[in-house]
Write a protein that binds this DNA or RNA. Structure first.
Lengths: 222, 222
DNA sequence: ACGTTGACAATCTCGCCGGAACTGTCCACA
DNA sequence: TGTGGACAGTTCCGGCGAGATTGTCAACGT
């Protein structure tokens, strides 16, 4: 039906969110609705029609960036074959790196409200909220893992990473290396004895991503 | 020489710090120098002579409570024979419990400045600052441990605990249980294979506390 | 000697106020 | 369907003055 109109609307939405994200990332704090409208090349009313109110705009941005963040982490988890240690370590490093590169992403990952106002007030830390998604993805991707163990591991790594974002960081590489050793030791200590990680069960090809993503990484847009 | 005078001075110091700690703990925010003096039963000038200025008073309190905190954690680490898992788990649980029971202790452990003003501004999180002390104590107390492994383990547990203090907590028991499993798995995954923890080397009696405390838990009063 | 009292300027805190900016909504217009 | 103007209600911000607090001094009492 409204195929064309919807495409335009989506365009406008993205443009507005881009403008706002750019401003926040550049440290210009948060912009007024009027400024966002101007920079996005639309009228203020269009903005209100599209997002309802300021809060709607903010949460739309938060949602979008949260999805980006989560997707990249899942991609990283998926990009290391059967090497669980490398996968988790790389994912953690990626999270730290993204937070370091982008104030907005850092705020979303940690849940700190100070930097970006109420933007994050709703969800809290993405790292802590998405633990079930991460666990589910891990289990789907690495079927040899034990569910309970995986949950705890994800929990620990998530809090470890978040903690590193909240205070005087060590560089992402160091954090990744620490996570690597942690995961290695943790998995090696499992019920099957040391080096359990290396015992693969199903040498499946690398084609699980889309499916697992669709199954687990659903947040509900709004 | 000034033995008697010094004892009196120490008495006054403790009294003043007690008064202030009580107020902070009770949520009465921070007191004025005048109020502290009155409640401690001394004149305002005595307070200034003793602590120099307000900041001196605050940091003196922070130092004292930090020492209490660290001592209790070390005691807990020391109170479980050769069971490393139980020791670390109990220590973590104790930290969480102390933070839950006492606003001041929570602020000191986490390093958050919001609650108690500049009191903590200097040191930052005790949990994160005292990692070398904790590692050293662990190594002295459990000689079978590998130094590097211990450092990483302490690091991870410290950040894990701190993270749990900073946001919607799970109860101390749950955190302790998680730490327990984490430590168990971590140690079991060590170079000697699973259940390495159980292989004791030196069945020494329980007499290490004072010595190790004196060796490692020195912060320098001021 | 040592702690107390009173006094002092300098600073900080806090509530209040007016002006500006912003939000959210309506309507006329193209 | 999107734009521009207009609008009341609200929030944000700098200035301001009263009052409290800090840090220091000197005179006093024991």
């Amino acid at each position: 039906m409204t195929t064309y109109a919807e495409r335009v609307r989506a365009q406008v939405r993205e443009e507005a969110l881009d403008v706002l994200a750019a401003a926040v990332t550049a440290g210009d704090g948060t912009l007024s609705m009027a400024t966002v409208a101007t920079r996005a090349g639309v009228s203020r009313q269009t903005l209100y029609n599209e997002f309802g109110n300021r809060e709607g705009l903010l949460t739309a941005l938060a949602d979008r960036e949260n999805r980006v963040l989560l997707r990249r982490v899942l991609e990283e988890l998926d990009a290391h074959g059967d090497d669980i240690v490398a996968a988790v370590s790389a994912a953690a490093g990626t999270a730290v790196r993204m937070a370091a590169d982008n104030v907005l992403h850092k705020a979303l990952l940690t849940g700190e409200t100070a930097t970006v106002g109420l933007l994050v007030a709703h969800g809290g830390s993405l790292l802590l909220r998405s633990q079930s998604e991460l666990s589910a993805f891990m289990l789907a991707r690495f079927p040899t893992l034990d569910p309970e163990d995986t949950q705890l591991l994800v929990h620990v790594v998530a809090r470890f990473v978040q903690s590193h974002l909240l205070l005087p960081h060590e560089p992402a590489d160091v954090v990744a290396a620490q996570v690597s050793r942690l995961v290695e030791r943790y998995l090696a200590g499992g019920p099957d004895g040391p080096n359990r990680v290396l015992r693969r069960v199903d040498p499946r090809p690398d084609d699980v991503p889309r499916d697992a993503d669709r199954t687990t990484a659903r947040g509900g847009t709004s």
